[in-house]
Design a protein around this nucleic acid. Structure first.
Lengths: 341, 341
DNA sequence: TAGATATGCTTAAACGTTTAAGCAGCAGTG
DNA sequence: CACTGCTGCTTAAACGTTTAAGCATATCTA
């Protein structure tokens, strides 16, 4: 018994037409009578014909697959990107091959090379902080920050920071602690700069970087936020939700009430941020839009590349390089307390 | 200027040998002299020869790609699975194509079909709760719970629960609240059952399901844990870290000190669980091992399938169906308080 | 020394698709 | 009626790889 999937020639033989005619009917390309085309499509369906990607890829030189390189899939920041990229790519008829650069600086280049080797038509990459993305003949869309060289599209991290700062200012906070993780991250720096840009000289603003503190006191150490609170700092603006979570629980554990005695804000609107107590004020990226722009740009670049066959693919540019972010105000932020304790 | 990647025939012509010889040299299969083989490999390297996956796939019928179907990539539980699957698959020479079943019950089947259509050699699936995985000619490895039909490998959720229960008992807790999200989840039920199995009749044990509470009071509503605490419940054992986080912050917000006045435990050891205050006591899955067993089993099934060409692929079974979990004791769990407040 | 066997390579076919080119038949044109 | 052009289909080549089969030449065996 042969129940194996039929191929084009079996389908054609079954119908008594040539292979080319069958192919044309299914792709709607050549010249043939509407009736025959219709009949071919119907029997194709009925016979359960599924075109072989391998055959098609070999002939057309296109695999219909995009690569996605993420610095660290385990990091809660990236799954949402992956999710949206997958959604949009699937909608555009592409599959998504994932690769992990494992936060290893050389692994990123290796991951890209492996994807190219697998024959992907294009690559979306969220670069590891502070690395150069190699030039290839394969189009690469980069999602980082507007200032990153060859960046394709990204959230407007700067304006996101500005929105947080305005929110804190409106709440009357005058002594504000900015909490970042790693100063070598483009994204984090842009967010911090955005916040600073909207804070006036009348306000006191300090920045701490978690990696620096952990370098001294070990991973997962306390950030000593209660001491900052004692010095009159009432707002703790973090560069990402996990850090906000760390700050929030540390303050709560120290008996400091949120938001009555201190305000905490984050970035990225991670799934759990609305379920904790108090729910976290944060900034939400428009991921669906970012993914759409990135994939659109990439697909366009792939189509264009056929025409000119020059070796290095030019930078992939989107119709819009920067997508607005949205401040989501929840209960972890509140008016600055009147008196310092 | 043609800098396009050379193919086998160009490489062969350059060396003055036949295509078959070049192929044999690179794959190490046919009969040929070691010297020539060496020379071919060297010039291949030097010319930057990269074999075409499309050509190879067409000839061998194998794409070298596995599919990975996850219920919801945005859910913090799955990235770690994805990460490990990707790592192990890459090590075994496979690429990983991701698909999202979007927690949509029909999308899962569609995702599987699309992957098969793309020509994947096998599929790893973490099934959406309570769904049947369709039978295909393409081998499918399932990661869920030991009792799930056709399950390939999974963590020993039952024993994980048992470990939590023993830990709580050892700490002297007598009134324990089990917090689950959705009773239709195999994984969550097994964890709950595991916990109950090690709690004696002398202890008071209740279970609440978040979806049921939210159905009444809306998404993100309070779980009223302070009231449970007032009724003398001192331990809150959650079925996953995000729920533990929700419980922990809710209790802290209500002014209940962790772990002095209440103990909270989770499952899954998510990245942030060690950075919050207090760090979360949780149960860690051995994901690297689970991924290894799943991919091993899948790859074996793929190799075996060639021999017998019967239509539905038999269930993929691993050498070990269940992988032990490890209790990670941190500071969110402590001795039961002496007196009830 | 004849025959068998092993060695080192080549020839050629096959995988399933797309697509340029070709070829009848037929309608319209001058 | 000869010529052109369109329509509807077929023929055949090509994409790049793997691999079975073939074929000399060299080595061993009796």
């Amino acid at each position: 018994m042969k129940a194996a999937r039929p191929n084009l020639s079996e389908l054609a033989r079954h119908l008594g037409v040539s292979i080319a005619t069958a192919s044309n009917a299914l792709s709607g390309k050549g010249r043939l009578s509407p009736e025959l085309a219709q009949r071919i499509r119907e029997t194709a369906n009925q016979m359960g014909y599924v075109p072989s990607q391998a055959g098609r890829a070999l002939r057309t030189g296109r695999s219909g697959v995009l690569g996605l390189v993420l610095p660290d899939i385990g990091n809660p920041l990236y799954p949402e990107i992956a999710q949206e990229i997958e959604r949009v790519a699937t909608g555009a008829g592409y599959g998504v091959l994932i690769a992990n650069s494992r936060d290893d600086i050389s692994a990123q280049d290796k991951a890209i090379f492996q994807l190219v080797e697998r024959g992907v038509d294009g690559i979306v990459i969220v670069p590891r902080r502070g690395t150069k993305v190699p030039e290839t003949r394969c189009p690469i869309a980069i999602i980082d920050t507007p200032k990153t060289p060859r960046n394709t599209v990204s959230g407007d991290h700067f304006d996101g920071g500005a929105q947080v700062a305005r929110h804190l200012t409106a709440l009357g906070h005058t002594r504000i602690l900015l909490i970042g993780d790693d100063p070598s991250s483009n994204v984090q720096n842009t967010r911090i700069n955005g916040m600073r840009s909207e804070l006036s000289d009348a306000q006191t603003v300090e920045t701490i970087w978690i990696v620096e503190i952990e370098a001294k006191h070990g991973k997962g150490c306390a950030l000593d936020l209660a001491a900052w609170r004692a010095r009159g700092f009432t707002a703790f603006a973090c560069v990402s939700d996990p850090h906000a979570l760390r700050a929030l629980t540390e303050l709560q554990s120290a008996g400091i009430a949120i938001p009555a005695e201190a305000t905490v804000t984050g970035f990225d609107n991670l799934q759990w941020s609305s379920f904790i107590s108090p729910p976290l004020t944060t900034v939400k990226m428009n991921m669906p839009e970012i993914a759409r722009l990135a994939i659109d740009a990439l697909v366009t670049a792939i189509k264009d590349r056929d025409a000119s066959d020059d070796t290095p693919s030019p930078p992939v540019t989107a119709r819009k390089a920067s997508v607005p972010m949205e401040l989501v105000i929840r209960r972890s932020s509140g008016p600055a307390p009147e008196a310092q304790p």
